[in-house]
Amino acid sequence: VTLFVALYDYEARTEDDLSFHKGSKFQILNSSEGDWWEARSLTTGETGYIPSNYVAPV
């Protein structure tokens, strides 16, 4: 499992996005959609889309 960590805070703009804070960790579920990845937050357990340029591999 590849884990990613948030580099910045992000406020969701749609109900499909995940809001998160810098330092939040994610499991990436689908990275084939270009700049928006489907991810599960390891902090909240919620699933949604995150901007790929806001995260980096742990």
Rank of each mutant, 00 (worst) to 15 (best):
A56H: 08
T43L: 12
T44Y: 03
A12V: 02
A12S: 12
A12L: 01
G23R: 01
W37G: 00
A12K: 08
A56V: 14
K22P: 03
V1F: 14
F4L: 04
N53H: 13
L29P: 04
E11A: 10
E46G: 05
P57W: 05
S41H: 12
D17A: 15
L29C: 08
L7N: 03
S41W: 04
V1C: 15
A6M: 01
S52G: 07
W37R: 01
A39L: 02
L29Y: 06
F4Q: 03
L7K: 05
Y10C: 04
D9G: 05
H21Q: 14
T14W: 14
T2F: 11
W36H: 06
I50A: 00
F4N: 00
K25I: 15
N30C: 08
T14L: 10
D35C: 14
R40D: 03
L29G: 03
G34R: 12
E15G: 13
E33F: 12
L3D: 06
E33P: 10
T2V: 13
L29V: 08
A6K: 01
V5R: 04
T14Q: 11
Y10E: 00
A6W: 01
V55R: 00
Y10P: 00
S19K: 04
S19W: 03
F20I: 03
E46R: 09
N53K: 13
G34C: 11
L18M: 13
P57M: 09
S32N: 11
G45S: 05
D17L: 10
G45I: 02
Y49F: 13
E15R: 10
T2N: 11
F26R: 00
F20H: 00
V5F: 09
K25D: 03
D35W: 09
N30D: 13
E15A: 13
S19V: 02
V55E: 01
L42I: 12
D17G: 15
V58I: 13
L18P: 00
G34D: 13
D35N: 09
L42C: 15
Y54V: 05
G48D: 00
H21S: 14
V1N: 13
F26G: 00
E11D: 10
R13F: 08
S24W: 15
A56I: 13
T14K: 13
V5S: 04
I28R: 03
K25M: 15
Y8N: 06
W36C: 08
S32D: 11
P57N: 05
D17K: 15
L7A: 02
L3N: 05
N30Y: 07
L18G: 00
S52W: 08
L42Y: 07
E11H: 11
L7D: 01
D35Y: 14
Q27F: 14
Y49K: 14
N53I: 09
G45F: 06
G48E: 00
K25W: 14
V5T: 05
Y10G: 00
G34S: 13
E33A: 14
L42K: 03
H21L: 14
E46S: 07
L42G: 02
A12P: 04
T14D: 11
I28V: 10
A56M: 11
Q27G: 03
S31D: 13
S32T: 12
Y10F: 09
F20E: 00
S41G: 03
W36M: 13
S31R: 12
T2D: 11
S32Q: 12
I28F: 03
P57T: 06
W36V: 07
T2Q: 13
W37L: 08
I28P: 03
F4H: 06
F4E: 00
V1P: 10
P57D: 05
P57I: 09
S31E: 09
V5L: 06
S24K: 03
D35S: 09
F20P: 00
E38A: 07
V55N: 00
N53E: 10
L42M: 11
A6C: 04
K25A: 08
P51T: 02
W37V: 06
R13Q: 14
S32R: 10
D9Y: 04
G34E: 13
E46V: 08
Y54M: 11
N30M: 07
E33M: 14
D16Y: 15
G23C: 06
V58N: 05
N30T: 08
P51W: 07
T47L: 08
S32P: 11
V55Y: 01
Y8C: 14
E33Q: 14
D35V: 09
P51A: 04
S52T: 06
H21F: 12
F26D: 01
A39F: 03
R13N: 09
T47V: 15
T47H: 08
P57K: 08
P51L: 08
K22F: 05
T43M: 09
K25F: 15
V55L: 12
E38D: 04
Y49G: 03
V55H: 01
D9T: 06
E15T: 12
K25E: 10
E33D: 15
P51S: 04
V58Q: 08
A56S: 09
N30K: 08
R13D: 08
L42S: 04
P51Y: 06
Y54F: 11
Y49A: 05
P57F: 06
I50M: 01
